[in-house]
Simulated assay, not measured.
Amino acid sequence: MPAMAAVLFDLDGTLLDTAQDFHRVINRMLAEAERPAIDYDSLRSQVSNGARAMVSHAFALSPEADDFPRLHQQLLDDYAEQLLISSSLFPGMTELLRWLEETRTPWGVVTNKPKRFTLPLLAALNLDHCGSIICPEDVSTAKPDPEGLLLACQQLGVAPERSIYVGDHLRDIEAGRAANMCTVAAGWGYLNTGETPEQWHSDHISHQSTDLQPLLHSLLQAG
């Protein structure tokens, strides 16, 4: 395996812990609909599946239901107004990103989260200076298609086979594998209930966010 030279991250559930903000917005919507609140852990398991999955799970609705488009749009609009009340970097990520920058290791973000949310979040956390930020609007096909990862590698000026992708969903690992990248499963992320990162067959697994820096150090020094 060649020495790794760049690191790309998924956003929600990998780099940023955004679940509490989604949980608050969803529960307010449920209260308005006179429905019972949803448990935090139950909703957390759906965050990386996207807004549609969260609405479907919280309201027990099929996407084909008459009310679904309205509720989906309400979640997006309400969330846009409350992006950073509780959201923050996962433990250890501040130190990890500082280390990457001190060692001049290119890094970036490849996410299925729309720019409407991604760019303000990263700007508020002073992370928008990274070498590449790829959102669904930047590609013709989102993950698990590798297009976004390949574009990010091009922007960073590093070959995909010398790049690492860290993500907390099967589609992240599938996208990284399709791009011929080294894949790391983020075991601390928003996994589906009953799911384990071992099921994804990534190249590596980091079960705690604070364990990621030593793993990346070993991969960036290898070769």
Rank of each mutant, 00 (worst) to 15 (best):
S86G: 02
S86M: 06
S87Q: 11
T94Q: 14
T94G: 13
L96I: 01
L97R: 00
E101D: 15
E102D: 15
E102P: 02
E102K: 08
E102N: 14
E102G: 12
T103E: 15
T103L: 12
W107S: 02
V110I: 13
V110N: 05
N112M: 07
K113Q: 08
K115C: 12
K115W: 07
K115F: 08
R116M: 13
F117C: 12
F117H: 15
L119W: 09
P120T: 07
P120D: 04
L122V: 13
A123H: 14
A124R: 11
L125K: 07
L127M: 09
S132D: 09
I134Q: 04
P136N: 09
A142C: 09
A142R: 13
E147W: 10
G148V: 03
C153G: 03
C153V: 02
Q154E: 15
Q154H: 15
Q155W: 08
Q155D: 07
L156H: 00
L156P: 00
L156M: 04
V158P: 05
A159I: 00
P160N: 07
R162I: 01
H169C: 04
E174C: 02
E174Q: 14
A175Q: 01
A185E: 03
A186N: 04
G189K: 05
N192F: 07
N192L: 15
T196Y: 10
